[in-house]
Structure formats: structure tokens, C-alpha cells
């Protein structure tokens, strides 16, 4: 392994992670600097709905495609969502496994699973790009950041797919690209829409708390 690849796998990643961590801490501090609105009203709705249940339901809502009409009525979109995010987890995982668990990274099964996840996520990324560029509604709401973030991730999935075998015999270009992209990704994320997962627990917490207090969450659907 060359010095530059070693640097990209270790030092660069660590620096990027520390940077991301610091920015995230600042970001959470900024978010928490806003006051949480106080609710004075007595609970409404069924006694089966409470703020606690509402929060829990709100947090796991995304894992229950039947819970929301928007996901229930678009199963293909939901599957895409799952594949895309599994791809993210797989590619990030790979950036840790290569430097810190090389034995596992060398396993044929590992390579196969990683390539399935990242390959599928790449295809979903392409589909999402087509939707974002081609759909009138999506174009109307998209920002340069939305396009760039999606392109970035789609290309990154492709790099992860190619880098999965970790074959250095034919050169290090693929690995170097993957790790430099990962580092860029980590640095860029806090400033982009990709940081949505940082806010997700908070947004869902407050929405779930309110809806639970008001008897709406957990949702009841009519037969």
C-alpha cells in the first residue's frame, strides 16, 4: 500500500470525521439555541395516545411504510428509499472496515454483499436523478445542493462498488478515489441537505410529541 493510500484511508478520514463531528456539534448547539415551544393544553384524543407513544411512533414511522399514505401508495419509491440508505450505510461501513478490519474486507462474501448494496444504491441514485431532473414538481423544488448531493452520492456508490474487492494489484486509483470522495462527503455533508439525518430525530421528536399529546399519533386508520 502506498503512503498516499494509507493517508487517504487513515489520516484523511480521521480528519474529515473530526471536522464533521465539530460542525455537527456546532449545528446541534445552534438548533438547541432555539426555545422549544411549551404546550399548556390538556391532552386530547384517545387515552391510547400519549406524547411518549407519539414520539416513538414518529421516530419509527419511516420503518412503517403502511403508516403514511405517501409511502403506502408508492411502494416502489419506498423500496428505493430503503436501498439508497442501505447503500449509504454499506459504503460508510466500508470506509471503516478497510482500514480497521482488513480481514473482513478480504472475504468474498463481504465483497459480494457490499457490491449488491452499493450497486443497487447506485441504480436507485440514477433513478432518483432521472426523477429529479425529469419531473416538473421535483425540478420546481430542487436546489443546486439537491442535484449536487444526489450526484455526489450516486458517484460515491459507484466508487464503493468498484472499490469493494480492494484489489491493489492493478493500481490504487479506485481506492484512492473512494477514500478521497468519502472524505469530501464527510466534510460537505454538514453544509448540505444530506445532514437531514441530524435533524430527523429532533423534528420527528417534536412533531410526534405534539401529535401524541393531541391523540393523532399513533395514527388510526378507518376500515
Amino acid at each position: 500500500m502506498s503512503e498516499s493510500l494509507h493517508f487517504a484511508e487513515h489520516t484523511l478520514q480521521e480528519m474529515a470525521l473530526v471536522f464533521m463531528g465539530i460542525v455537527y456539534i456546532l449545528r446541534v448547539r445552534w438548533f438547541l439555541s432555539f426555545k422549544a415551544g411549551k404546550e399548556r393544553q390538556a391532552a386530547t384524543g384517545s387515552s391510547n395516545t400519549t406524547p411518549k407513544k407519539g414520539i416513538l411512533y414518529s421516530w419509527v414511522n419511516i420503518a412503517m411504510p403502511w403508516a403514511m399514505e405517501s409511502t403506502r401508495s408508492k411502494p416502489f419509491m419506498y423500496i428505493q428509499f430503503i436501498i439508497f440508505h442501505l447503500g449509504v450505510v454499506a459504503a460508510i461501513g466500508h470506509s471503516f472496515i478497510v482500514p480497521y478490519a482488513k480481514g473482513l474486507a478480504a472475504s468474498a462474501n463481504y465483497v459480494l454483499i457490499l457490491q449488491i448494496f452499493t450497486g443497487a444504491a447506485f441504480l436507485v441514485g440514477v433513478l432518483r436523478l432521472i426523477r429529479r431532473f425529469g419531473d416538473k414538481y421535483m425540478r420546481a423544488i430542487s436546489t443546486p445542493d439537491d442535484y449536487f448531493s444526489l450526484i455526489l452520492l450516486t458517484v460515491w456508490f459507484f466508487c464503493a462498488f468498484l472499490a469493494a474487492p480492494h484489489n491493489l494489484v492493478d493500481g490504487e486509483t479506485v481506492e484512492l478515489t473512494f477514500f478521497w470522495m468519502t472524505a469530501f462527503f464527510l466534510i460537505y455533508v454538514p453544509f448540505s441537505k444530506i445532514s437531514h439525518y441530524l435533524y430527523y430525530p429532533f423534528t420527528r421528536f417534536y412533531f410526534g410529541k405534539s401529535m401524541g399529546h393531541r391523540g393523532v399519533y399513533p395514527m388510526q386508520r378507518g376500515k
Binding site: 438548533f31 438547541l32 432555539f34 426555545k35 422549544a36 415551544g37 399514505e69 405517501s70 409511502t71 401508495s73 408508492k74 419509491m77 426523477r131 419531473d135 414538481y137 421535483m138 423544488i141 430542487s142 436546489t143 439537491d146 441537505k193 437531514h196 435533524y199 430527523y200 429532533f202 423534528t203 417534536y206 412533531f207 405534539s210
Partner: peptide
């Protein structure tokens, strides 16, 4: 006017478009 709930909703949108067809105006 900003509070945590509102800020969460302002920064949380990923422009996924899943809300589009939930609206009767659309």
C-alpha cells in the same frame, strides 16, 4: 418567531417530493 419545532421543519425538508400528492390543491 422561530422556535425549535419550526426550525426543525425549516431545515428538515429534503425536497423528496413525497408530500406532493397529499395536497388537494396539487
Amino acid at each position: 418567531k422561530l422556535n425549535r419545532q419550526v426550525v426543525g421543519s425549516l431545515v428538515g425538508c429534503v425536497h423528496c417530493g413525497m408530500c406532493t400528492e397529499a395536497c388537494h390543491y396539487v
